[in-house]
């Protein structure tokens, strides 16, 4: 059961990723990225990461991507105008080269990765474990992150506001 689910959603993720880099209009790219994030959320559930899957959908797909879509709407971004056709040489060489590199990388990972398969249900890292770790071992980065978010808000206001 697990491999079937994995293959389905891995395929969806890869197809959406390819669509992201191929589509002309940014809004279609944004929707493809949401597709990637959704399928990744299912994969996180398969890996037992319940909290992260929920956070992925709520924060990443639900907030960050909404921000992207909003900015695309605000700027009325149109289709991308490709200035000149990329040379057939680049296309001929680029895609096989990338596939070759990925092939080598996959072989290396296959050989080097530890044995054992990850079955669903043997381990779940839910909100309790994440919360416990965030407030004990990782307390310091957690608090620094609040400053990070402050700077992001500050930056967004300072840069984008018409009259400061």
């Amino acid at each position: 059961m697990d491999p079937i689910l994995f293959f389905i959603f891995a395929a969806v993720a890869v197809i959406c990723a390819i669509s992201l880099i191929v589509q002309k209009h940014p809004i279609k790219s944004a929707l493809s990225l949401i597709g990637v994030m959704g399928s990744l959320a299912i994969l996180y559930l398969l890996l037992g990461a319940e909290f992260i899957a929920a956070a992925q959908l709520i924060v990443y797909a639900g907030a960050i991507m909404v921000l992207f879509v909003f900015v695309i709407m605000l700027l009325n971004a149109g289709e991308e105008k490709s200035p000149a056709r990329p040379s057939w040489f680049a296309k001929l060489l680029g895609i096989p080269l990338m596939i070759a590199l990925l092939g080598i990388l996959s072989y290396v990972i296959q050989r080097a990765a530890p044995e054992g398969s990850l079955a669903f249900g043997e381990y779940t890292g839910g909100a309790r474990e994440v919360g416990r770790a965030l407030f004990t071992t990782y307390l310091l980065p957690f608090e620094i992150t609040s400053v990070l978010i402050l700077i992001a808000i500050l930056g967004a206001v300072v840069l984008a506001k018409k009259e400061l």
């Binding site: 993720a13 890996l47 996959s106 296959q110 990765a113 398969s117 990850l118 079955a119």
Partner: peptide, 11 residues
């Protein structure tokens, strides 16, 4: 029964 770790890493 499960999915090997390397598949996730390759993806």
């Amino acid at each position: 029964n499960g999915v090997p770790l390397s598949w996730y890493l390759i993806l």
